[in-house]
Computed example of a mutant assay.
Amino acid sequence: MSTTRARTYPFNAGEGLDLDPLYAQLRAEEPLSRVQLPHGEPAWLATRYEDARTVLGDPRFSRAAVVHHDEPRTRPKQRNDGLLAMDPPDHTRLRRLVAKAFTARRVERLRPRTQEIADGLVSRMRAAGPPADLVEDFALPLPITVICELLGVPFADRDDFRTWSDAFVSTTLLTAAQVEDHMERMFDYIAGLIQQRRAEPADDLISGLVEARDQQDRLTEREMVVLASGILVAGHETTASQIPNFVHVLLDNPEQCAALRADPALIPAAVEELMRFVPLGAGAGQARYAAEDVQLGGVTVRAGEAVLVSTGSANRDEQAFPEPERFDVHREGPSHLGFGHGPHHCLGAQLARMELQVALATLLDQLPGMRVGGPVEWKSGLAVRSPRRMPLTWQAA
């Protein structure tokens, strides 16, 4: 284990979307540096694009190994279940069970329904008149409705989902006991839905998991509960956070916003650029452990050492993206790491892309003169950065 002094991590402030300037310094001078999170052992932090891709995609770096270590983390309790703590082939086995629900073709079939939901939400915002809260009135209900319909979960329970999602991404917002209580409540809730689908199967993802469990023995009962719970949270949390983040960036860049209004065909490219530009995470998470000695970023990562990846820093790497601090909806170049890379590349990336495209297109088209209408309240104590409340106003008819 290296004896190099470890910097306190994460670097970013909890509010706003700025990337700490220390990342740029590290990319230039110390691309692999030692950091210490609030809990767990010290780790290496990868800040450059190519190093990040290596750690995320190279089988010499393991996620499953976290069960044998005191994983660096921001929360007191370490959790080692679910897809995120697996390597192939177990990871592949479970991922394949749900991957077909998130293919590009399947997701495109959901676009008309997603558009219908978005239109309805904006119509209610317009009818009530400005200002509206972009988070409560649009950003949360849109992806929650979509993932509930896909999984087969009652939308009426959405307030519980929000509480459970905060528990999933809590760093200091909740105590360890509160996090554990909320997560067990969610697992119990999903287990109850599974029993309902056993009695009355439906055309939804939970029913498909039940069939894979009961008729094909392809996953355990616990794996099914944890997998469905993770999909429920991840299936809306990132999109619900990124919609106000993206709108915030667009309104801060009026010339780019005007370009999208003038040419809506640019919106898919804009979503990709926003995924690159917006550092959603407050820091890096999900350490990988070196299975053998690996040369990375000019140092030797010894077998058994942990490596964290800052995708926010990697997405601003000057060696990968010309003028990386500039937001440009016309940008071309390498793929961003906003959805990760390698075996753990975001399972719902295609769904998130579609929802974000629909969200931006609908807001830009139906809310002329859209602008922030009051102080933005930012989330705190969570692993993700996003407004908790974002007043929005527009030119009312």
Rank of each mutant, 00 (worst) to 15 (best):
T4V: 08
P10E: 07
E15V: 12
L17D: 09
P21F: 05
Q25P: 06
R27D: 07
E29H: 06
H39E: 10
E41Y: 05
A43Y: 04
T47M: 05
G57D: 10
D58F: 09
P59R: 07
V67L: 06
H69Y: 14
P76S: 06
P76L: 11
K77G: 05
L83Y: 03
D90T: 02
L97H: 03
A104Q: 13
R111C: 13
L140W: 03
P143G: 11
I147H: 03
E149N: 06
L151T: 01
F155P: 07
A156N: 12
D157C: 13
S165H: 04
S170P: 02
A176D: 10
E180W: 03
M183H: 06
R185V: 08
D188P: 01
D188G: 02
Q195C: 02
R197D: 12
P201S: 06
P201K: 00
D204L: 12
L205M: 07
L205W: 02
I206H: 00
L209W: 00
D214W: 00
Q216Y: 05
R218T: 11
L219W: 03
L219A: 02
T220R: 01
V226W: 00
L227C: 05
I231C: 01
S241L: 01
V247W: 08
L250F: 08
P254R: 07
P254G: 11
P254F: 07
E255D: 14
Q256M: 12
A259W: 03
L266F: 12
E273K: 08
V278S: 04
L280N: 07
A284G: 11
G285L: 04
Q286E: 11
A290G: 13
L296W: 04
R302L: 13
A303G: 14
N315F: 11
N315D: 15
R316W: 03
E318V: 09
G338I: 10
F339W: 11
H345I: 14
V358M: 10
A361C: 09
A361Q: 09
V372N: 10
V372I: 15
G373N: 09
K379P: 05
S380W: 08
A383M: 13
A396V: 09
